[in-house]
Amino acid sequence: MANALQADAITVQFGGLVAVNDVSFSVPEGGIVSLIGPNGAGKTTFFNVLTGLYKPTSGVVRLGDEIITARPPHIIAKHGLARTFQNIRLFGLMTAEENVMVAMHSHMRSGILRTLLKTPHQRREEAQAHARARELLDYVGVGRYASEYARNLPYGDQRRLEVARALALQPKVLLLDEPTAGMNPQESAAFVEFVRRVREEMHVSILLIEHDMSVVMRVSERITVLDQGQKIAEGTPDEIKSDARVIEAYLGKSGVEGGR
């Protein structure tokens, strides 16, 4: 199967510190893959390389056929890589609907002149954007909050709004950064279902960073484990469960702290 996202031999150094060391990794088209690892394993750094925030010391990232290594974040977004944030980063003082519409920016054309003149094209484009935003809000289940400020939404709904905003980019790959952080088990379970549904209905591939093992095991088709910047294992959930190195990384020397 073709890969929607492929990272080859990514290395990131900060000064003398190697945060990510020669990690290769791919997300197959239509797949759900997870990246796990103990705290400080380099997951977030790796994510930041994918989204263009960091320039890797070496290595190449491909989105479909496009090489996106170290391109500006907005270009990468336009090519179809969308993300949510570990600590929610909505545009707090814009309405939920506007939040979603911001992400349509790169797919819209109207510049200053068209907006000022309200040309037919601009009106049509705005109308379509509004309609599409409503659809997406309804789809993730926060339609009733369309004209609320994003920061006034309940926590779980803010997470869903972030997904709606990411989907508005029409992504090929959706990166979810600890999406169930702060959720209780019922909410997490519902979120897992939701992620599956999004994958089916929106035709996206999904890459997940997650701490909650029950979520990871339930939703992922493949799992990659990072520890101290190295890839230490890769495989199906069952393979990972029984991998000695993974168990050591999680429970071994730092067993007490890693168990949470």
Partner: peptide, 8 residues
């Protein structure tokens, strides 16, 4: 800000 480069 990024240290080093992938190639010269």
């Amino acid at each position: 800000g990024a240290p080093g480069r992938s190639a010269p």
